[in-house]
Design a binder for these strands. Structure first.
Length: 163
DNA sequence: GCCAACGTTGGC
DNA sequence: GCCAACGTTGGC
């Protein structure tokens, strides 16, 4: 799928998966947030964090609930603001505070996302694992712990059909 | 630049 | 709560 930004540059839309522990921030919390938007703060793994730098406004992501009774995908978010320095890294009162971050030299970034949809029922991790078309999915890779992973367009369409 | 120790993630 | 897997730190 091709789309246009700023009237000039055409780019491929990218797809992502955002993990969150529902006890910390659930998709219901996002629904209740002002304008149903949130900064995706607190990602402190460099590999995962760097992915936010490559995100573009309009990119779509699955919202994944982790570390809970039934881990799985619960809905879709849309990137509505490109990466900015993660304010929580510069906030001493935040649990995500990072001593080595500064405005001049940010180490961590965050995009803003808005709620796109909540699935009528969760697509459980076990269902994803059981789907032969998703065997190569980054989320399912052995030992995968990244809180943000890329999703291919084929995987996106397949999972969207499962919803 | 290696690598052991340590901390964290996250499914089960 | 266990534990495998992985990332980060810091001594050398």
């Amino acid at each position: 799928m091709i789309y246009f930004t700023r009237g000039m540059i055409s780019m491929q839309k990218q797809y992502w998966l955002f993990k969150s522990e529902p006890q910390t921030f659930s998709i219901q919390d996002l629904m209740a947030a002002p304008h149903q938007k949130t900064l995706w703060e607190g990602v402190r793994n460099f590999q995962a964090n760097r992915m936010m730098l490559t995100m573009q406004v309009g990119d779509l992501g699955f919202f994944y609930h982790s570390s809970c009774k039934t881990p799985g995908i619960v809905g879709v978010v849309r990137v509505c603001r490109a990466a900015i320095p993660d304010p929580s890294a510069m906030d001493p009162s935040s649990p995500y505070f990072d001593q080595r971050s500064s405005q001049a030299q940010p180490r961590f970034w965050c995009v803003q996302v808005e709620l796109e949809s909540i699935f009528p029922k969760i697509i459980a991790l076990s269902e994803l694992r059981a789907n032969p078309h998703l065997q190569g999915m980054r989320l399912l890779a052995r030992g995968s712990r990244l809180s943000i992973t890329p999703v291919t367009s084929q995987e996106w369409l397949m999972i969207d059909k499962m919803a």
